[in-house]
Design a protein around this nucleic acid. Structure first.
Lengths: 233, 233, 233, 233
DNA sequence: CATGAATGAGATTTCATTCAT
DNA sequence: GATGAATGAAATCTCATTCAT
């Protein structure tokens, strides 16, 4: 979870679960005033940034859409950049946690990948603004990327790799493919689908493609077949 | 092709409002002086933008690195944004043209995909700055300056789809896979490899992974196999 | 005395628009609670302002150091500026009253000046924070918030002048020197000593210089001598 | 001379006489454009700051009074603070240099002090704005003070001390007075005169008091007399 | 064609002050 | 009386763009 900065009193009420630098997300206690504003600002930020891009988004507009004074934003976030970080982080975290949970239910590697793919596309397909921000802003800034990718993204990527290795161990995925390469294909394919969807004017059902993609990739990975293709070099 | 604006003989800059968006005087004449500066600015822009990202790049710095006065930049480009567009466009065009050429030599769909993958990774792996700009700024620009990137990228994407359909027609690629999905997987996988490479501190050989990726994907697409996997839903 | 505003029993804050500028409820009642906070805020203000200067001091920090909520500050003072005024005033008043008392004991003008000098240096030398604030903020405030300082300072200055005139009347100070000029020299010399002390990193004994300074000035003022120096013009 | 930041081209034309960090005051060559603006901004700054105080002065107002765009200010100065520094520094330098010159003409210590006093009061009496800034802003900021006093002011102070020591060597000033204390009295007295003048509404002739002050102090310092006063303790 | 000094709109952020609790 | 979250005005500084030379 990203470091945030809610008003002091609220902060002191928190079960100290912050890690980075200082503040922490206000707990959702009965008093939902602070939490309320925190979330409203975050939501507003995602909406505005999705619409105009981070650099063309004005804090004043985020504040306005969150229905708070612009100064209030700085009671909850240290800087405009921090808002984006928190937004990206929050979106990712909630997805990731859910992914881990849902996967736990299935022991089969292939099935797990299938669940993951569906979840990936569903999660992003459900909230276009978050998808836009994730697909455009996350890659756009070398700073974010370096910071974010190194930690969060890598965890997701590693999850995929582990599933693949598990499949290799149990024999459902052939061994002559690097788990890293396979994970790249898996993640890359999903990512591309989302990007195309984000860039598309139409709002088609993103998750619908999940199975076909997984089928294709699993077929390629599956040890139960023979590729007629051989690398030349 | 992106609108560009090398100073023509005519005093009236942008004597012709061109296609899509802006004035374009392709400057493919023998004239070396202008072309020289035009290209220097473009190169400088790519270098600077790769380093700091578009929004954190200063026109003054691009000018300085191109060894021209900052005002001169505006003799060749209408705006800072235009520089980015031209840079993206130039990088993409040269790749795309080469891709079309190299592919022409081979009639086999699978082989073509293999060539394309290798070219894709080689081209980007050869020039890290361009790769960085392409991977970080292109989506952003695709989303927010849609006109351009949408078209260019779509052309590339369509090229891939056509090859796949060709393979389906000749029987080397199975028919029960959507060419669109397959192309997404293909492009997405390559794209992910490049992104990972760009983000990596190490400068490993990007193209080395080409064959393995293509093998995996072709195996999945190949009609010469049977996938044990069935979609659930 | 500066307008101050300790919360009185009355709900109507500032029931009386007072003298000069603002409401003043001297709070010299037995009531300790209010007085307590009032003084704590003042002390905190002096400490913070001495450290960072008035304009770089935050009301929030003063409040924090006084261990009250920032809103509470406004129950006792009308504005940040008022805090400074009250602080300057308080510091000055207590010194001035004491000066008047101590001087009363001695009938001799020279002796009185000597007492004053020692008191001046001792008082400021005893509390560096107050000295810093007085030396750095008082002029500023004298120039821009003229009402207050002008009066206070003038009273002190007049006290010095009176002593000098007294000395002239009794014959211990020569008559050919303007009491105003002499007072300027006297005050200026002391002021400069304090300023140098305030700026110095070392915390030497400020009052130690008192006698030497007074000797020098009294020698110059004394009628019991002949200056070899004549003004040219 | 303080580091300043004139536009690059001008900078490159300069005889590199800068010391601190970067830019330098544009030389007064034929092209007076830059020099012109630099000085205009400085003059405007002194006027505005004298009127409202540094912290209450707006860069926009300084720019407006200098008849340049507000952004232009930042071509010549790195920050608002730098403007004040440059202004204080410039004013002081020119005074100090002149003081050194004028003093050189006279070999007598007493005469030198007399010259210095007159110059001090004349210089400040001639330009009330500079005097105001010097008397109020210079002391106000611990930062300025520490930085400025440590270097410039100390040089002035040392000049005074040297003259006094010289007088002690030649016998015109008595030896039983510390040159440091004497210099404090001398400087302090002058400083107080200026401050009083600055704070006064009337615009009387500041320099008129010079001789009387010097007479008083010299009388006190002079070895040709006997003080009837003895320190008590 | 080239230059770079000048422009000035505009955005982030701070912080004195208020006021509902 | 006390609190501190919320406010929103305001100010510095940046930088894309222009234009006189």
């Amino acid at each position: 979870m990203l470091p945030t900065k809610p008003p002091a009193k609220v902060k002191s009420r928190l079960s100290a679960e912050n890690r980075g630098q200082e503040g922490a997300i206000p707990a959702t206690n009965g008093n939902n005033r602070s939490t309320d504003k925190y979330q409203r600002i975050l939501d507003a930020a995602i909406a505005v940034i999705a619409e105009k891009g981070f650099h063309n988004s004005r804090v004043a507009e985020i504040a306005e859409r969150a229905d708070v004074a612009s100064g209030t934003v700085y009671l909850y976030f240290k800087s405009k950049e921090q808002i984006l970080m928190a937004a990206l982080d929050g979106a990712f975290q909630s997805f990731f946690r859910r992914a881990q949970n849902e996967i736990a239910g299935s022991p089969d590697a292939a099935e797990r990948l299938r669940i993951l793919a569906r979840l990936h596309l569903e999660a992003l397909g459900r909230n276009r603004s978050i998808a836009v921000v994730l697909q455009t802003e996350l890659r756009q800034s070398a700073k974010f990327l370096a910071q974010f990718s190194q930690q969060e993204m890598k965890a997701y990527f590693n999850l995929i790799r582990e599933i693949i290795r598990e499949g290799q161990r149990t024999g459902s995925i052939r061994q002559d493919v690097s788990d890293k390469i396979a994970a790249s294909c898996f993640f890359g394919a999903l990512d591309e689908l989302v990007t195309a969807w984000v860039l598309s004017a139409r709002d088609y059902d993103l998750a619908a493609a999940a199975d076909e993609v997984v089928n294709l990739l699993l077929a390629g990975m599956s040890s139960a077949k023979k590729s007629g293709m051989e690398a030349r070099s």
